[in-house]
Design a protein around this nucleic acid. Structure first.
Lengths: 160, 160
DNA sequence: ATAATATAGTCAAAGATGGTCAGAATGCGA
DNA sequence: TCGCATTCTGACCATCTTTGACTATATTAT
């Protein structure tokens, strides 16, 4: 019944109706709802995860913030989930390259972007015992995939 | 947001849009922003380091100054060599991010490409013991750097 | 030369945020 | 009501910024 988390979730989603991206102060928000700051993290983790189509970025220290970015269309988003699942905890070089190729064919990344992704997951980029390579490659690829599906970039092509 | 440090950084970069080199009075600048003079040093250290592509020179005493020089590479090739050398066998996350930022400022990569590069070298992409992270990050970054510059060459030889 | 003055540099501590995780509290379905 | 899942909290950690006291180095006046 109108739980704290639900309220916070609704509040954030209202803020995001206009913009696909917002910045907030974790402590401010917590104070606004009279709860522990870590409660905000809980809401973000359970309702604004990648699975839900959001990406969270943040900065600590003075002037710190929590940024919430809503990713592209739902169709793309389910593709992302599919790919993330496919990658899992471990993936071979061949499978990785296939995924990257697929992204390019679907025009989700440019030729250059695909090239960079390959450079990051290739055998010679991951100088580790073979068994560990696949695990690490999966981690790197997952991180890049999420970024690819991030919305923001074309939306605000100004300011650094 | 709009942190003091960020403001000072922006201010300096605006000054440098015209010239690749400027001289400042540290105390004057500090006064202009109403902060401690050492704040200026902080900004220089964190945003105008060599990894960011700048060199700082200064003089104390009467008529003292702080000079900021944007490094200029003779060619893409020599910049690549410089960066590869800097990366070496091991590099921290901060230094890596600075280098990537530099590539973007020099318009050698797009915003999205920089984003992908960051995704590949970030802490959370490299799930390893800390000591190993830096080594691996260096390998990944080197691989990506080479790709960026190789592609640059191709692109340039095509058009024109 | 020496002293006074004018700059800039360093570094450690304080301040300002946000993150993580284990466990307590609460809600809910069987 | 019992027990598992979800929600919340608080203690402790990590990171980024800002300041101030102390130091170092020029220039200028005596």
């Amino acid at each position: 019944m109108a739980q704290l988390s639900d309220n916070i979730e609704r509040f954030i989603k209202e803020l995001m109706e206009e913009d696909a991206q917002i910045d907030l102060r974790r402590n401010e928000l917590a104070q606004h709802f009279g709860c522990a700051p870590s409660q905000i993290n809980y809401v973000l983790a359970t309702r604004f995860s990648v699975d839900h189509g959001y990406i969270i970025e943040s900065r600590r220290g003075g002037g710190g913030y929590v940024r919430i970015v809503r990713m592209k269309a739902r169709s793309d988003q389910s593709l992302l989930n599919l790919l993330l699942e496919r990658v899992g905890n471990s993936i071979t070089e061949e499978a990785s390259l296939a995924i990257i190729e697929q992204l390019f064919e679907r025009r989700l990344v440019t030729r250059n972007e695909a090239m960079l992704m390959r450079a990051a997951v290739e055998r010679n980029a991951l100088m580790l015992p073979i068994s560990a390579k696949d695990v690490l490659r999966a981690a790197v690829l997952r991180n890049m995939l999420v970024r690819v599906f991030r919305n923001l970039e074309e939306a605000r092509s100004h300011d650094v």
